[in-house]
Computed example of a mutant assay.
Amino acid sequence: MTNTLHRYGTAESFRDDYIIFAIPSKGINDEDCIPKLKEFLRICASHSPVNMGNGNRGSLAPEKGLDPTVHWNRIAIKDWESVIEGVIKPGTVSAVFSTKEDAEACMKEIVTADFGFSVNMSTSVENAIQAAEASGIKRHSVEYSLGFYDPHDNLPDSQVLALSTMCGHGMVSFNMAKKMIEMVQEGRRSSEDAANTLLRFCPCGIYNSDRAKRILEQRRGKTE
C-alpha cells in the first residue's frame, strides 16, 4: 500500500506524473541498506526529477530564519544532495518525474542496479506497463485506489482534488489548493510560484510541481 495511490485524476492526467520509490523491509533487507538507498536517490537525481524525498526527514532542505510568512516568498531550492545525505536510517525514499523519458530511463538504471529491495512506480496503469517494458521487466502486480465516496456532494471540484491529493498524507489542504487557484486566476501569483508553494507543504517529497503548474494553468481565466 502506498500513499501515492490516491492522486485524483483520469489516466490521461498522469501523463506527466511518475513516482518511483524504494522501501526496505524491516528485518529482511534493511541491514546496511543506507548506502543502497542513497545510491537509489543518486540514480534518480541524475534523471531530472521534479521532486525527491526521504520519508524520515522530508524533501526540500530546511532553512534558518523561517517565519509564518516565508511560504509566500521563499523559492523552492531543489537541493537533491541534501536530501540524499539526509538518509540516515532505513525508510522510504522517492523521486517524482514529469516525463515518460526521464522516468523510464531512471527505472531502467534502477533495474540494472538490482538493490534487492522493493521498488515501485506510481502512475497510470498504462504508463507503468510501458515503463516496465522499457526496463526489460514485466509488471507483476497492480494496486488501485477505489476513489472517493461522497453521497452528499461535499468534496471540492476535480482540480482542487488533483492539487491536494498529490500529497498523500493530506498536508496540502483543499483550502490551500483553492487559494492558489484563486491567486493564479486573479494574477496575484504565477502558476509556477503557486505550484512551488504547494510543493513545500508535502514533507515526503512526492508532490509534483510540474503537474500542479499545468493544472493551475488550465484554471487561469476560468471562474466557478
Rank of each mutant, 00 (worst) to 15 (best):
E81Q: 05
N54W: 00
A105Q: 10
L37R: 03
S145H: 13
T69F: 13
S158W: 06
E182F: 15
G9S: 08
R42A: 09
S191F: 14
K138V: 06
K138P: 04
S48G: 00
C204E: 05
L41N: 11
H140V: 12
T69G: 07
P49D: 08
H169C: 10
G136L: 01
S145Y: 13
K222S: 08
P24W: 08
R219M: 08
C106K: 00
S46T: 15
D210E: 14
E143G: 10
G187A: 05
N73H: 14
D67P: 03
S48V: 04
T10G: 12
V160K: 10
P90S: 02
I137H: 04
C202H: 10
A113H: 09
G187R: 10
D114V: 07
L198D: 05
N196M: 07
T10Y: 14
D102M: 02
K178C: 07
N120L: 11
N196R: 06
A194I: 03
C167I: 10
N29S: 07
V87Q: 01
N208I: 13
V160R: 02
L155R: 13
L41S: 05
L163G: 06
Y18P: 04
M52Y: 05
C33W: 12
P24D: 02
T92D: 03
A103H: 05
A132E: 12
